[in-house]
Simulated assay, not measured.
Amino acid sequence: MEKEKPPIFGMLQRGGEVVIRMLADVKQATIGPLIRRTIAAGSLVYTDEYDIYSRLEEWGYAHETVCHAAGEYARDDDADGFCEVHVNTLEGFWSLLRSWLRPHRGISQECLPLYLGFFEFVHNVRARGKRLLGALISQLLAPPRNPS
């Protein structure tokens, strides 16, 4: 947390919801419990080759990676013409988040989780369209949840 840019960890179900959290570090001991609370055991998880994901199979997940260092960004493992192994969906989400945060220069680390929570909320209710206001009011009236 002493860093100017704290680590932000994200998990995104393709075509579904996102979970993003500001973390103290990106160690397996930190991300493991968050992954287990968020992703159903047995799910197939796509990541890049970063070594913090090396225990996903041990934790009960199927795991496929792309190797950005080797210039690989998508792969068609089953030869059906569709590159299913990629992390492009989450990469696109990060791009949207950075663009949204850019005008808010100088966000303190204490306030950043609130900004992340709002962006996560808007992303997750985007399919509700005009019902967004009702969903927002419901969330505001809901009991607080642990942000970690």
Score class of each variant (00 low, 15 high):
residue 46 Y to A: 03
residue 77 D to K: 08
residue 103 P to M: 13
residue 134 G to V: 12
residue 132 L to K: 06
residue 108 S to H: 09
residue 24 A to M: 09
residue 4 E to I: 03
residue 120 E to Q: 15
residue 43 S to E: 08
residue 19 V to G: 07
residue 18 V to S: 11
residue 62 A to Y: 03
residue 31 I to N: 02
residue 104 H to E: 09
residue 7 P to E: 03
residue 142 A to F: 12
residue 81 G to Y: 11
residue 82 F to T: 11
residue 115 Y to L: 07
residue 122 V to R: 11
residue 26 V to F: 00
residue 2 E to T: 12
residue 1 M to I: 04
residue 136 L to P: 02
residue 36 R to A: 10
residue 101 L to H: 02
residue 76 D to N: 10
residue 106 G to S: 13
residue 148 S to D: 11
residue 17 E to L: 14
residue 12 L to T: 08
residue 134 G to L: 15
residue 62 A to D: 13
residue 41 A to R: 15
residue 113 P to D: 05
residue 22 M to V: 11
residue 105 R to S: 11
residue 55 R to H: 12
residue 144 P to D: 07
residue 41 A to T: 14
residue 26 V to W: 00
residue 121 F to V: 12
residue 123 H to D: 04
residue 89 T to Q: 03
residue 74 A to D: 13
residue 93 F to W: 14
residue 88 N to A: 09
residue 14 R to N: 13
residue 40 A to G: 10
residue 70 A to C: 04
residue 111 C to H: 11
residue 29 A to I: 12
residue 38 T to Q: 11
residue 57 E to R: 15
residue 30 T to W: 03
residue 61 Y to S: 09
residue 36 R to T: 13
residue 116 L to H: 03
residue 143 P to T: 09
residue 4 E to Q: 08
residue 22 M to H: 00
residue 41 A to Q: 15
residue 137 I to Q: 10
residue 106 G to H: 13
residue 95 S to N: 01
residue 28 Q to S: 13
residue 36 R to W: 06
residue 94 W to K: 01
residue 102 R to D: 05
residue 84 E to W: 06
residue 41 A to V: 07
residue 110 E to K: 07
residue 53 Y to T: 03
residue 115 Y to R: 12
residue 27 K to C: 05
residue 115 Y to T: 10
residue 9 F to I: 08
residue 126 R to Q: 15
residue 15 G to F: 13
residue 49 E to P: 02
residue 79 A to I: 02
residue 141 L to I: 06
residue 59 W to C: 01
residue 121 F to K: 05
residue 95 S to D: 00
residue 95 S to E: 00
residue 80 D to M: 02
residue 65 T to Q: 11
residue 49 E to L: 04
residue 36 R to V: 10
residue 123 H to P: 05
residue 88 N to R: 06
residue 116 L to A: 05
residue 46 Y to H: 13
residue 52 I to R: 04
residue 97 L to H: 00
residue 46 Y to C: 08
residue 18 V to C: 14
residue 25 D to W: 02
residue 136 L to S: 12
